[in-house]
Design a protein around this nucleic acid. Structure first.
Lengths: 235, 235
DNA sequence: CGGTACATTGAGAGATATCAACAGGCGTGG
DNA sequence: CCACGCCTGTTGATATCTCTCAATGTACCG
């Protein structure tokens, strides 16, 4: 039933460094120990798929480490990335018994896996945990709504600038504030996230660099003029 | 505290015809009676705003009757409609203490209003209700994800066809299945929902009609060739 | 050193936006 | 009851942004 890569988690949940970011923030120490018994640690390397659209939802996951892309494919191969997952994100919520989207590791990833039924039993009479899951789901929904505005009503330039600003913001709880942003996803991933083509994304990055608002560095971007980027995002 | 239009609800919740669609489906009769004491009935006429982006979230709402548009505005007036609400929908979930979006009545609307704090107290120790809210939030999220694909990766023609198919599907629980679809929202609303301009929406409707796949009727559309519309939506 | 995947750059095409005019329905008021 | 004005929707002509197609450049890895 469990993938071959499953193994008992390497450290107690009470030691988990990102616990406060996760669904587990709602649990006390005794509950954490109980939950630890239901979970396994899993690792995936860059490019591997953790679960795919239309697959049965057998598990929930807490992302511990790494970055994932969450995406939907159309029959003809067009892809829309609906979000990127970072440590602390809870994956596997679905409206039906099948996944609504696929999830790949962008770089090496570590996850806590919970069997769906066991987790459901565990959460059944824990209103605090249910409220916490709710909170995370509503936060996701809110991000999705912001992204709809971006996709439907913003120009390419605004899309890229907004992406940079929001991505930087999302990294703050993980890596702290910084003008240098790690951008682990490819140009194609960014394009599929923003509803653009890879060429338009590339051109826009280049233009921003030529205008002196960013500097493109290996695997990331440095904001030379954060205020200008914010202005481009707000317009 | 309550808006002037508030009034005790006119019928007992146990008689509510759309209860099974709402958050209340998780409650038994005693709970329904208790909840009824926390709620007020509100009415709004076409064009009125029930709550606006950035306003404090003081209430939750169950939509009883009518259709609403949920939207976000950019500073320069561009608008993205993030969804339409139908009877049974639960409104007011927010990631912060302020609304993420605005909500207008498209036509005459009736709502059950609950004060946020009273509802929170009521739900606090009711895992069934919390799970039900979760279920509705996850369903919303799933719809939002589908809509992101539409906004980011579909052509104008696909967008309009997909809109018709999905809107018809959403009306099924309310009005039953039919090839004639009530379209209470304006062309501008549809455009702002699909990330298009009103002219493009109008032209696409006209083209569909000229091609014999739909017929435009007053306040709605009749699908003359539903299979063709589905094909246009799927492509 | 060569291959492969990813990214950049350029030229041209095309889908949708923009700008503008017109039509139809509906309520209001003369 | 009819005329007018307003609002919404439709249609046309043109502009423009982004896509498409193609070539080139670059970094990493065997």
């Amino acid at each position: 039933m469990f993938p071959a890569t499953g193994e008992p988690i390497g450290h107690p949940c009470t030691e988990c460094s990102i616990r406060r970011l996760t669904v587990c923030a709602a649990l006390d120490e005794a509950e954490l120990r109980e939950l630890a018994n239901l979970s396994r640690s899993m690792r995936f390397s860059a490019g591997e798929t953790v679960f795919a659209q239309e697959e049965m939802t057998t598990s929930f996951y807490n992302l511990q480490e790494g970055v994932m892309r969450l995406y939907k494919l159309l029959a003809d191969g067009r892809r829309q990335i609906i979000g990127f997952a970072l440590p602390g994100d809870f994956l596997g919520l679905a409206a039906s018994s099948r996944h609504n989207f696929s999830a790949d590791a962008i770089r090496h990833v570590e996850l806590c896996q919970f069997a769906r039924s066991a987790f459901a039993r565990f959460s059944a009479n824990r209103p605090d945990l249910l409220r916490r899951i709710n909170e995370l789901a509503v936060r996701e929904l809110s991000q999705a709504q912001d992204h709809m505005v971006l996709l439907g009503r913003r120009s390419a330039e605004e899309k890229v600038a907004t992406f940079l600003i929001r991505w930087r913001q999302r990294l703050v709880p993980i890596t702290g504030p910084s003008a240098t942003i790690s951008v682990p996803m490819s140009r194609q991933d960014i394009a599929d996230y923003l509803g653009l083509t890879i060429e338009t994304v590339s051109r826009t990055f280049t233009r921003f660099e030529r205008d002196g608002v960013i500097e493109i560095i290996s695997s990331g971007v440095s904001l030379k003029d954060p205020a200008r980027v914010e202005a481009l995002a707000t317009t």
